[in-house]
Design a protein around this nucleic acid. Structure first.
Lengths: 128, 128
DNA sequence: TCAGGTACTAACAAAAAAGTAAGTATGCGT
DNA sequence: ACGCATACTTACTTTTTTGTTAGTACCTGA
């Protein structure tokens, strides 16, 4: 759990206030968030679809990251009152606004990787 | 220390291979790296200068992040054989190439913050 | 009545990141 | 002989993030 008065938390809070990059990364960073966002850039997806299309995520992690993205207003959770349950996630306008930035980061990251290895293995980025 | 066979490490490695964003963030992310990079965008700086211009970093953290940036080829460490010691850090070409990306992330982060609070308090970003 | 499908939740454990405090090396000036 | 300045190291603790496992709730069809 989060200790709001730890040096760590205070440092983070200050950096978030002062540095746009740290602020942005506190929202789109983390182990699974970039991949989730990339998936949703193409349209809405159900919980199970996300789970299947992101190799390695556990349910707990997926839900946790979805919740955070939702709290930050990047995605919207749409519940259909059916049985069995049906829940879809889609990007909000804010979430979509992150697209070009994500693309920029992705490009830089991929360029860097391609400098070191000749093989190109991008399956999760927007671009090829 | 890093366990190379933990699920965590394996997941991270896979994501780094497949997702440009995760790859990029593994290099420029972390608590202090963005701020360090912003500082160096304006020119080279000595270790102590960095320490003073980044409120809240401990020496250990600063060194650790500088070492990682150096290992990833974003910065160069220049040692002057003097006493007392003098060491400067500067961006490499690769480091400089991250500038526009950092600016993009910073802009998005700042825009987001300015939507929520009316006050603008950016002191560490490239832009005002 | 019982398994099946969907979307979760909770309790706990492991790993990683960040922070704290104290120490090291070197030559110079006093 | 001693403290100063600079740029670090080292050993250790705390905090945070990530992963594991076993549930829960609901209706449906067999």
């Amino acid at each position: 759990m989060r200790k709001i008065n730890s040096t760590n938390a205070l440092n983070e809070a200050q950096l978030i206030r002062n540095c746009g990059v740290v602020h942005a990364l506190s929202i789109i960073g983390g182990r699974w968030k970039p991949t989730i966002l990339f998936n949703l850039l193409y349209g809405k997806m159900r919980y199970n679809e996300l789970l299947k299309s992101i190799p390695g995520v556990s349910e707990r992690m997926l839900i946790a990251q979805l919740r955070e993205l939702e709290q930050h207003g990047l995605i919207r959770r749409i519940v259909y009152p059916e049985v069995p349950p049906k829940v879809e996630y889609e990007l909000t306008t804010l979430g979509k606004s992150a697209g070009p930035m994500l693309q920029g980061i992705s490009d830089w990251g991929n360029k860097l990787r391609n400098k070191k290895t000749a093989t190109t293995k991008n399956t999760a980025g927007i671009s090829a």
